[in-house]
Simulated assay, not measured.
Amino acid sequence: MTQVCLVGSEGVDLRTELVSRETAREALATYDLREEYENSLTVETISLGSAVALLNDLNWYLVRFADDSLVLEPSVSETEWLSRDLAEAVRDGGVEPETTDRYLKVYGLTAEGRLVEPMFVARREDGEIPTYDLRDVEDTVVVRVAEDEFGG
């Protein structure tokens, strides 16, 4: 199963904003909504294609209420998320799954479960991701991004 995680903007209750709007509520109606991280909404879809389609259906709301849209596709990585743009490129065949691990956005994860400012990484050191050093955090969440998203 492919997962989609929507990360809400600061000061926005993402779940409330989405379920209070008819079109978004209808798009999410068949999914079991859960909160992977604080102020996020995570659902399981049947494929990478359905994950990208869901993000496209919700785009109007995501632009207004979300800071990030992530996709966890097991055929690419069991633990590292893909950015929305990279997930779409993989789905469309423009990027090979095995080449997606170069550019990374690494979020810090606080003890409260909130994702905090990302650190951008252009390469792994001996196959490892450099230590997150922007602040003290409990863990990290790794997101693979497309080259044109890197650092921006």
Rank of each mutant, 00 (worst) to 15 (best):
E73K: 01
E73W: 01
E73D: 05
P74S: 14
P74V: 15
P74R: 14
S75M: 11
S75I: 13
V76T: 03
V76F: 00
S77L: 02
S77P: 06
S77E: 02
S77G: 03
E78G: 13
E78T: 14
E78S: 12
T79A: 03
T79C: 04
E80R: 09
E80W: 05
W81D: 08
W81N: 10
L82N: 14
L82S: 10
L82E: 09
L82V: 13
S83W: 04
R84C: 15
R84Y: 12
D85E: 11
D85S: 12
D85K: 14
D85H: 08
L86D: 07
L86V: 07
L86N: 06
L86T: 06
A87D: 09
A87H: 11
E88N: 15
E88W: 15
A89W: 08
A89D: 11
A89V: 12
A89G: 09
V90D: 01
V90N: 00
V90P: 01
V90F: 00
R91I: 02
R91D: 00
R91W: 04
D92K: 10
D92L: 08
G93W: 00
G93M: 00
G94C: 11
G94E: 15
G94P: 06
G94Y: 05
V95G: 00
V95K: 00
V95F: 00
V95D: 00
E96N: 05
P97Y: 03
E98M: 09
E98D: 09
E98R: 06
T99A: 06
T99Q: 05
T99L: 07
T99S: 08
T99N: 04
T100W: 01
D101N: 04
R102T: 03
R102K: 01
R102S: 00
Y103N: 13
Y103Q: 10
Y103D: 12
Y103R: 12
L104T: 08
L104D: 15
K105E: 14
K105W: 10
V106Y: 00
V106F: 00
V106C: 01
V106N: 01
Y107T: 15
G108E: 08
G108P: 04
L109I: 15
T110A: 07
T110N: 05
T110F: 06
A111F: 02
E112V: 08
G113Q: 13
G113F: 07
G113V: 14
G113T: 12
G113R: 13
R114N: 09
R114G: 06
L115V: 08
E117Q: 03
E117N: 03
P118G: 03
M119D: 03
F120S: 11
F120D: 10
V121Q: 07
A122R: 05
A122V: 06
A122E: 10
R123Q: 08
R123K: 11
R124P: 04
E125G: 07
E125A: 08
E125D: 08
E125L: 09
D126K: 10
D126H: 09
D126P: 11
D126W: 07
D126R: 10
G127F: 02
E128C: 11
E128R: 14
I129G: 02
P130A: 13
P130H: 12
P130E: 12
P130L: 14
T131N: 07
T131H: 04
T131W: 03
Y132W: 05
Y132P: 02
D133F: 07
D133V: 15
L134A: 04
L134Q: 04
L134R: 04
R135A: 11
D136A: 14
D136Y: 13
D136I: 13
D136P: 08
V137E: 08
V137I: 13
E138A: 15
E138D: 15
